[in-house]
Design a protein around this nucleic acid. Structure first.
Length: 450
RNA sequence: GUGAAUGUAGUUCAGUAGGUUAGAACGUUGGAUUGUGGUUCCAAAGGUCGCCGGUUCGAAUCCGGUCUUUCACCCCA
C-alpha cells in the first residue's frame, strides 16, 4: 500500500507557475539591490546553536529548529537533564546546530569571521530561506524567504535614506501601494526616560507596538501589569496619541523630549531622514509612527516597517539600525542598518491583488510538433536551429495526435507552435502558428529571428 | 506553547434521526475530429469518507485520541 505523501506543516511546494512568480519577486528585488550597489552573500542553512541562542529573546529560542547531533546522541546527553526530562537543559547536550531564524544574526557572524576580506562600509544583500517553529497561519510559514539588504560600518543617515529609496523602488516596480512607517528607537528611549522608566523600555515598546491592534485601553492595562506606575502611564498617553503631519509630530516631540538628550538625538535623526527624502525622487507615503516599536531588541536608531495599503496582511518589509550587532561576536562599534523584505508575504499580496504580470512565460517560446519518422528528424533539425538562434524551444517527444500536442502547448501557455510535417520538410520550410490568435503562416526558418 | 473550528474523488464542495452500491461540478483520460489547442457533445476512470481506537447487529455520520489546515492569543516576514 502506497503511503500517503505529505510535507511538514508550515512548508509548501511550489509548482512551476508559483515558482516563476516567486522568481519574479526575487529578481525584481535583487535587481534593485544591485542597482544600489549591494553585493550578494550566502550563509549556511544551519548555524551553531550557540550563534543563534539568546539573540531573539526567550520566545525566539523556543522557535528555533534544533538539529540533533549525529550518532548516538543520547550517549552524550546530560544525564541530569535526561533524568528530569528537562528539555531546555537537555537540548544543548544533544544538539549543537540549528536552522537559521533570520539573516541578520548570521550576517553579523559572517562580518566578524570575514572582516579581513571585506571592504567597509560593507553593503550586502542576501536572499535565502529561514525557518521558525512558529504555529503556521495565513501569511505565516515555518519556512520562508527573507531578502535582506544591509550596510555595516557607517553611521551616516545617508544609509537610512538609501534603504528607504530601495524600499520605494522595489514596491513601485512591483506596482504595489505601500505605507512606510518610520520611527526611531532613541525617541522611544527618550519617552521611557521622560516617564521615569528607562529600564522598562523593552516592555514599553512591546506594549505600544500593539496600539493600533488592541487599542489604548489594553495597552495601558498591559503596561500597568508590567509594573509601570500609573503616573508614568498617564504621562505616556498623550505622547502616543499625537496627531498631525510628520512635521507637526516632530515639533511636538521637540518640546516633549526637550529634557532628554537621547530623545532629542532621536528627533534630530528622524527629522534629518525626512529632510533627506524630500531631496530625492520618492513615491511612497512616509509616516512617522510613534507606536512602531518592532519586537527585535537590537535596534538602536531608525526603525521602519512597510505595510500594504491595499491588502490586509502583516508587515511585508521591516528593519532598522543596530549600533552593535557584531559586538556579541567580538567586533564592537560596528554600526549597521538594514531592512528585510518578506518575499512570501509580498507573494500573497501580489496574488491577492491579482497583480502579477500577465503572460509570464513558464515554458519555452516555441513548441515544435512531432510528426514522427523522417518528419521527426526534420523537426529535430528545426529545433536545433531555433536554439542556435538563441530562441527557447522544445519538441514534443512523442509523435502523438496533434490534438494532444496542441493541448500541451495550450496548457503550458507556449505562444507559438511550429509544424514540421511532410509538406514543410519537402519545401524546407516551417509553419508557424500563434496560439494567441490562431493565425498561421508558412515561412523559412531564417525569417524567424527578425 | 494556549484556546476554537475544520478534514469526503486530483480540486472546490454536497451528503448524517447511524442502514444496501457515498454524489455533483471542475479537472483528468478516451471518442465525435488520423495536419490544428481554447468552445461544444458523448463516455470512462478516479474515494481505506485524514489516521488510530471505542460505542453499535451496523459508523463518512456518535464518542475519545492523534495529525493537518484555518482563526485567535503570543510573536513575527
Amino acid at each position: 500500500m502506497a503511503q500517503k505523501p505529505s510535507i511538514p506543516k508550515g512548508t509548501r511546494d511550489f509548482t512551476p507557475e508559483k515558482a516563476s512568480r516567486r522568481n519574479y519577486i526575487f529578481s525584481t528585488i535583487s535587481a534593485v539591490f544591485q542597482q544600489f550597489g549591494y553585493s550578494p552573500i550566502e550563509t549556511p542553512a544551519m548555524e551553531n546553536l550557540s550563534t543563534l541562542l539568546g539573540k531573539y529573546g526567550a520566545e525566539g529560542d523556543k522557535l528555533l529548529f534544533k538539529i540533533l547531533n549525529s550518532g548516538d546522541y543520547l550517549q552524550k546527553a546530560n544525564p541530569d537533564a535526561l533524568e528530569q526530562r528537562d528539555s531546555n537543559k537537555l537540548i544543548t547536550s544533544i544538539a549543537d546546530k540549528g536552522l537559521r531564524y533570520d539573516l541578520t544574526v548570521p550576517f553579523a557572524r559572517f562580518v566578524v569571521m570575514n572582516q579581513q576580506e571585506l571592504t567597509f562600509p560593507f553593503k550586502r544583500y542576501q536572499i535565502q530561506p529561514v525557518w521558525r517553529a512558529d504555529n503556521p497561519q495565513a501569511g505565516r510559514y515555518r519556512e520562508f524567504y527573507q531578502c535582506d539588504v544591509d550596510v555595516i560600518g557607517s553611521n551616516s543617515l545617508l544609509n537610512e535614506l538609501e534603504l528607504l529609496q530601495i524600499i520605494d523602488t522595489v514596491f513601485s516596480r512591483l506596482q504595489l501601494n505601500v505605507l512606510i512607517k518610520l520611527n526611531n528607537r532613541k525617541i522611544l528611549a527618550g519617552i521611557a526616560e521622560l516617564i521615569g522608566q528607562p529600564e522598562k523600555i523593552i516592555d514599553i515598546t512591546v506594549a505600544i507596538d500593539k496600539l493600533d491592534k488592541i487599542g489604548i485601553e489594553k495597552v495601558i492595562a498591559e503596561l500597568l501589569q508590567n509594573g509601570i506606575p500609573e503616573e508614568s502611564v498617564e504621562k505616556l498617553k498623550p505622547i502616543l496619541q499625537l496627531e498631525g503631519s510628520n512635521e507637526e509630530k516632530i515639533q511636538s516631540l521637540q518640546h516633549i523630549l526637550a529634557d532628554s538628550p537621547i530623545g532629542m538625538k532621536g528627533v534630530e535623526e528622524i527629522a534629518q531622514v525626512f529632510h533627506l527624502t524630500s531631496l530625492v525622487p520618492f513615491q511612497c507615503k512616509l509616516e512617522l509612527d510613534l507606536t512602531l516599536a518592532r519586537g527585535l531588541n537590537y535596534y538602536t536608531g531608525a526603525i521602519m516597517e512597510v505595510k500594504s495599503t491595499e491588502f490586509a496582511i502583516g508587515s511585508i518589509c521591516g528593519g532598522g539600525r543596530y549600533d552593535d550587532l557584531t559586538g556579541i561576536f567580538g567586533l564592537p562599534n560596528m554600526s549597521g542598518v538594514g531592512v528585510s523584505f518578506g518575499a512570501d508575504r509580498i507573494y500573497d499580496v501580489l496574488n491577492g491583488l491579482n497583480r502579477f504580470p500577465e503572460n509570464q512565460l513558464i515554458g519555452p517560446e516555441f513548441l515544435v510538433l512531432n510528426f514522427g519518422n523522417e518528419d521527426e528528424i526534420y523537426g529535430l533539425q528545426v529545433l536545433n536551429q531555433l536554439r542556435q538562434m538563441g530562441l527557447s524551444a522544445e519538441m514534443y517527444p512523442d509523435a502523438s495526435k496533434l490534438k494532444k500536442q496542441m493541448a500541451y502547448a495550450d496548457k503550458r501557455r507556449i505562444p507559438y507552435v511550429i509544424f514540421t510535417g511532410e509538406e514543410e520538410r519537402k519545401s524546407g520550410s516551417i509553419s508557424l502558428k500563434s496560439m494567441a490568435d490562431g493565425s498561421q503562416k508558412t515561412l523559412k526558418i531564417e525569417e524567424l529571428g527578425i
